[in-house]
Design a protein around this nucleic acid. Structure first.
Length: 433
RNA sequence: GGAGGCUUCGCCUAGUCCGGUCUAUGGCGCCGCACUGCUAAUGCGGUUUGGGUUAAUCCCCAUCCCGGGUUCAAAUCCCGGAGCCUCCGCCA
């Protein structure tokens, strides 16, 4: 939810933001009208309640003679209050309905345009040249005994997979590398629930436009999260945080579930787009004035992680029309996929300012000791399945083996490469001095 | 799945049986002031959150886990729900 005060004081700013997103500008006026209407009925209801309150005090003090008349008046007022409260409820609901439909206000620096208008900020790493016919990650994964799509489909349907042998170890290696780097950077590691209540899902904005993307457990009124962002944001719902020492950072590991309802025919091969994968997600609670800097920090950690994996990538600044509902700004990192001859999204980081925290009622104490709405940011550290796909493709060799980045070796028994037919020794972490 | 207990303004707590000066008690913590060479101690005052109104203060309304209901009037009575705890059953 955006700040109502901002809409009252500077509606043009919000209108402009709507325009840049290609969203409905008239919502702003609908919101203003609903706000005025609500304040009117609130005032009427408050006043009536006040009158009724004194009338009901008078009942007690009234002499036996006066009593019937006083009681009549109190009864009449009670009826009016009831009616006014109903009007208030209706006005509140109308306001909220419009309010939640307006996405976060777009940051000034965001590039104009839509999906195809992202601006590449930088390209890092050499796109490798191969002197042999490159194989895609499925072919490589099958030869290594790392990925089994067929049996995934047999057990769970399309867009499901098994990670086996080196594939399974690779999953743990990536998770370990991601978490240990995050912990070293000061993040609190978290294993987050993958099933959440509707309030957490709503609060993070996933039930609006993403409703179709979300798995719902009807019977128990729970949702499967599409990202641990949902649980991490919900973790501090209705709390006042101490942010005096700087942002509070979590690195959450969880499984993620996505229906992929609108993506028939897209990425049907392999584990690039699947219904379930595991992910390590960074999440920050920050003071509103610190979010732009924090956003760049999250981006930097994402870049360092990909560099550790020796993957070539580019950083793109997402255009206004392609921003998520909660984001004021978003950077994606796209890594090189040789078989596709292009860069594909591997991570994404969004600055949500106070948009999520307002709905989730997450606050902090400012220097005056006043509780104010906090800001939230999120960023992918490692979306494991897709990262495995990228690693296998980029680091493949002519003989079907795959180079293992140095940073991952400690968790893969120290091997330099994954080779078809090899048996990996149990990974042993290096002794720490 | 079954039985019972609990939930009050940061924390602890009085109040709930028997509805109305509850405009919620006291302690701790915190903030301010006074006293003091400094600290401590002590004294006095302040200290839920949200909404409305205002230039600002004042003031008004709501808020005793949540949602309904009864009543002129609900922390208090009734119904439904959530969370926590204990015991039983089942279980990785």
């Amino acid at each position: 939810m955006i700040d109502l005060r901002l809409v009252r004081e500077n509606p043009d700013l919000v209108r402009a933001s709507q325009r840049r997103r290609g969203a409905d500008e008239s919502l702003v006026d609908a919101l203003l009208a609903a706000d005025v209407a609500r304040r009117e009925v609130v005032k009427r209801a408050d006043d009536l309640r006040g009158e009724q309150k004194s009338a009901s005090q008078a009942v007690k003090k009234a002499s036996p003679d006066e009593r019937p008349a006083v009681l009549d008046r109190a009864r009449a007022l009670a009826a009016e209050v009831k009616e006014a409260e109903e009007a208030q409820r209706a006005a509140d609901a109308t306001l909220r309905e419009v309010h939640v439909r307006i996405p976060n206000v777009v940051a000034d620096e965001v590039p104009p345009g839509g999906e195809d208008d992202a601006v590449t900020l930088r390209t890092v790493g050499e796109v490798p040249a191969y002197d042999f016919a490159v194989r895609d990650h499925i072919e490589i994964g099958e030869r290594l005994g790392a990925i089994d799509m067929e049996r995934g489909a047999k057990v769970s349907g399309s867009r499901f997979y098994f990670l086996t042998g080196p594939g399974a170890l690779l999953e743990f290696a990536l998770a370990q590398l991601a978490i240990s780097r995050a912990v070293a950077a000061g993040f609190t590691p978290v294993i987050a629930p993958a099933l959440v209540k509707p309030s957490a899902m709503e609060g993070t904005g996933f039930l609006g436009e993403h409703d179709e993307e979300v798995y719902r457990i009807e019977r128990d009124d729970l949702y499967l999260v599409g990202t641990s962002e949902v649980a991490l944001a919900g973790m501090h719902q209705n709390e006042v945080l101490d942010l005096s020492g700087g942002p509070r950072r979590y690195a959450g590991w969880s499984s993620c579930f996505r229906r992929e309802a609108g993506s028939y025919g897209k990425d049907t091969r392999g584990i690039i787009r699947v219904h379930w994968f595991d992910k390590v997600e960074m999440f920050s609670f920050a003071r509103p004035e610190d979010t732009a800097a924090e956003h760049l920090r999250l981006l930097a950690w994402e870049e360092e992680f990909l560099q550790a994996l020796e993957l070539p990538y580019r950083v793109v600044d997402i255009a206004a029309g392609d921003l998520g509902t909660s984001a004021t700004r978003k950077y994606d990192i796209e890594a090189w996929f040789p078989t596709q001859g292009t860069y594909r999204e591997l991570t994404s980081t969004s600055d949500c300012t106070t948009f999520q925290a307002r709905r989730l009622n997450i606050r902090y104490r400012d220097d005056d000791g006043k509780a104010r709405t906090a800001a939230t940011l999120n960023g992918t550290l490692c979306a494991i399945a897709r990262t495995i796909a990228c690693l296998l493709e980029v680091h493949q060799r002519a003989d079907g083996s795959v180079h293992v980045p140095v940073a991952l070796r400690p968790w893969l028994g120290g091997v330099e490469a994954l080779t078809p037919g090899m048996t990996l020794a149990a990974p042993v972490p290096p002794a720490t001095a």
